[in-house]
Design a protein around this nucleic acid. Structure first.
Lengths: 342, 342
DNA sequence: TTGAAAGCGCTAACAT
DNA sequence: ATGTTAGCGCTTTCAA
């Protein structure tokens, strides 16, 4: 397998074309004018030899890698997958590769990732996950590698952050439920491993207090273990049903949690939305394809990924025409999982 | 951002430690014995200077990139996301990065991807997608970059291929339905853009003929457009319901298609499994969390990804202890979406 | 418009 | 056990 096989280099092309090595380089990069005649010779030589520039060598010289890192906890979570799509699309359009780094919520793996960064394997990085190991933020900062945060609130004053207004999202969900006559509302959440999730829960509690709605401990369930999101929703949904008195509606910390809870309710004979209304968060694709389809708070995941990389590229080009905090207005998408209180 | 800032190199460390450049290198790589005393000096210097080896330089010298490419059509499809998890996990364990390349089923993007490969930006590649542009297989072959195929049948005699026995899977699904008394069975499929999907459909038709089951054109629906899989299932499900006579069961080409069809049925008042049985393919996580939970043919996606990379790494290490074709036995997972014919 | 030459930071002979 | 040195393939002054 091409080990040891002579690789075609620019030197070969230069020789074949009968010009200097640097002329080939200049032509390829457009860094100096090259006469049409010479151009032809070079092109012909490249064709004949099937020459392809070697990026590693180019990168060593240019002191960059042409790669961006994408740091997410779980690529099988459609929220992060959509985000990844936005990230890879913009990166590709700009000639960058994207190195995918998913931790599965394991903090030991974060260290490995930081190695990647510190060894200059990426020019910049999109962080969509709060490090569990706090010290890593400092290491990242000290590495000097440009970073952007997506779905992560600012941690310093140099890395731009793109987040949805999580509090507003929860308020919209709750206002909607209240407008349907609901007063007894529960909240089901995955682990609060990210500030966004903390804010959602806080916004829920604040709203409930402000409106003077009844609140019981058994109605606010937060999972501790880093299990699969849908499984978490299923477990919490079941647990909720054990409460001595049930709420008439629940808000979930994410769509996956909502889908799990929906399953728990339906399989226990609790009808949705007749007996229980549900609102999710994120608006993953499947939200509109479950039955009943899920009312949810939409986050523009793909766009958030795109925006993040756009900021990062601006940074790499020395332009800084972006705000430190980009707060996106979430949209309530009304579907079939909620109904007026009976 | 650290542009122009002096980067700490091995030379700096050597000077700081008062030893030769190569001694530092040898120590770091374990390529020659280094006395404890010298080791201490080097370690101290590294600490003091916050030195990190530069991978680009190392890679140029070693003529490798330490990165693997992962080529999939759609990372938001949980099948590919699970696969990606397997791929990135094994790669990480072996010190490789994974460059994610998703095409969104657009064949123009395949070209970009091939550039990546030809410019030696990856040491090897996992292909989980049949190129729409046939010529690319040849280009990949000519590039000399080691490749493995996952969920793609062999295209030559050098790249190992890891696939589930798609025919067996469909046969298991159909046998199960027949055992429940079903004779009128439909088939809903996403575009046949991959041989696996062709085989599934063929297996379906073959089985139906062999068993002498009734078959109507309106029962075998294959989408042409590259839309979202769930949407495809929803559309085909609706279309199926327009047939003058309905089958009592359907097999879907994948779980996402099955979920879409399930939604179509339920929202048209067709009960599942009472009026219609459904079997999916893949066993994505959500299959067990929809209501009713989906009976499906399981593909070990994560393991397939892992196996693929393991083969690739063997190849890169000059060992070739793997078969050209690894055919995995699919498992029928019985849940709640099928019932005996009423 | 073209060419010669000096590295980018590292590995790996080879010499000591 | 340690040091010297020649590149890896490319970009980029600087000269011609």
């Amino acid at each position: 397998m091409s080990r040891g096989v002579h690789r075609i280099t620019m030197r070969d092309v230069a020789k074949e074309a009968g010009v200097a090595l640097s002329t080939v380089s200049h032509f390829l990069n457009g860094t100096a004018p090259v006469s049409p005649k010479t151009q032809q010779k070079i092109i012909a030589a490249i064709e004949r030899l099937h020459y392809r520039p070697d990026f590693t060598a180019r990168n060593l010289k240019r002191r960059r890698t042409n790669a961006l890192g994408l740091f997410v906890p779980d690529i099988t979570n459609p929220f992060y997958a959509e985000l990844a799509r936005g990230v890879t699309d913009v990166a590709r359009e700009s000639g960058y590769s994207v190195i995918l780094y998913a931790t599965s919520y394991e903090s030991e793996l974060e260290e490995d990732f930081m190695e990647l960064v510190e060894q200059h394997q990426v020019d910049g990085i999109v962080v969509s996950y709060s490090f569990l190991n706090e010290g890593l933020w400092r290491r990242l900062e000290e590495s000097g590698i440009p970073a952007v945060l997506v779905d992560v609130y600012p941690v310093n004053d140099k890395w731009p952050s793109v987040v949805v207004d999580n509090e507003r999202g929860i308020e919209k969900a709750l206002s909607y439920l209240v407008s349907l006559g609901h007063t007894d509302i529960g909240y089901l959440s995955e682990p609060l491993y990210v500030l966004s999730l903390v804010k959602r829960q806080q916004a829920f509690l604040r709203f409930v207090r402000r409106k003077g709605l009844p609140l019981r401990d058994e109605w606010v369930l937060v999972e501790k273990a880093q299990k699969n999101r849908v499984e978490i929703g299923f477990t919490l949904g079941r647990r909720l049903l054990e409460a001595p008195r049930l709420p008439t509606a629940v808000v979930a910390s994410s769509d996956l949690v909502a889908l799990g809870a929906l399953k728990a309710f339906l399989s226990e004979g609790v009808r949705v939305p007749e007996d229980m209304s549900i609102v999710g968060f994120d608006d993953v694709l499947l939200a509109s394809y479950v039955h009943p389809s899920l009312t949810t708070v939409r986050q523009p995941k793909y766009e958030m990924g795109r925006t993040g990389v756009e900021y990062l590229l601006q940074f790499l080009q020395g332009r800084k025409e972006y705000p430190l905090l980009t707060l996106i207005e979430p949209i309530l998408v009304v579907r079939d999982s909620c109904r007026e209180r009976g």
